[in-house]
Amino acid sequence: MQNQFKSADGLVEVNISKQGDSWLYEGQSCQILNDGRLQVTTADGSVHLARAAKVGDVWWIHISGHTFKLERIEPGANASEEQGGLTAPMPGKVLEVMVSVGQEVSAGATLMILEAMKMEHKIVAATDGTVTAINFNAGDQVEQGVTLLDLEE
């Protein structure tokens, strides 16, 4: 069975197969326990208990003290990787726009300042580039995930 997930590191294809009560992947096996938890035996034989919960399209997995957020991509859906756009990490208010369209910026430059949860957050250029669009002005309210400005490498 094939599944596709999107994590912080990008898209991953996972092919699991069934053997008796167990599901197998990369030398590891997984069984579902009666209480809804999952038990993984890794390649070296160590056993880990995991919990899973789905919120929207995202599977939240807790295993061995780590928590993973894996968005399931529906088969056939066109999973678009993040473009050069800089998105609002939180709903909030634009406090200040530090750049103008056409301006060249270097990686690490502060482009915009947002206020969310009473704290200021800097929107920082991940790479060197040229600002090609600014979509909001100081004072504007923004929703989570909207593209604040575009940067072309």
């Binding site: 599944n3 590891q28 999952l38 993984v40 899973a52 997995i61």
Partner: peptide, 10 residues
């Protein structure tokens, strides 16, 4: 293991 658990849960 996390990917296996997510697939298995799905």
């Amino acid at each position: 293991a996390a990917l296996l658990v997510a697939s298995c849960a799905e």
